[in-house]
Amino acid sequence: MSTNQNFQPKIVVFACENSGWLAAEHAAELCLSYPEKVEMIKLPCSGKIDVLFFMKALEKADGTAVLACQKENCKFLKGNVRAEQRVSQTGKILKEIGIEEERVGIFYLAANMGHKFTEIVQGFYDKIRELGPNPGKVIK
């Protein structure tokens, strides 16, 4: 879909500090590489993610995702379930203004999954790269 082969999307990843954040640390220990233009923001639980955070991220980036604990295994029981609902809420908002809802995502992993972390991040990056630049970015 993208016309520009050199396009490098910018991705904002919100990471639960009990899983995604630690998995990123694990990936760093293993020196597993992933695209530079992926930046992370730490959350205490994926349930802290807010639709507004996603929206604000998408005002600047091409894609955004939240990394949550495995289903049924949230340290706070419902955090990843609520996170999933907020992802679909954001997806709906994007869709209604004509932006691909795939630009927001949720991925589940555990703290010791460094490889899975890079796989997720790389996969999401590639998907966003295919979608091309986010047309909704707000440049002030």
Binding site: V51, L52, M55, K56, L58, E59, I93, I97, G98, I99, P135, G136, K137, V138, I139
Partner: peptide, 14 residues
């Protein structure tokens, strides 16, 4: 209010 503001800004930017 915050979410809608962001949504409007993005839609018009687009």
């Amino acid at each position: 209010t915050g979410i809608l503001s962001s949504e409007l800004a993005m839609a018009r930017s687009k």
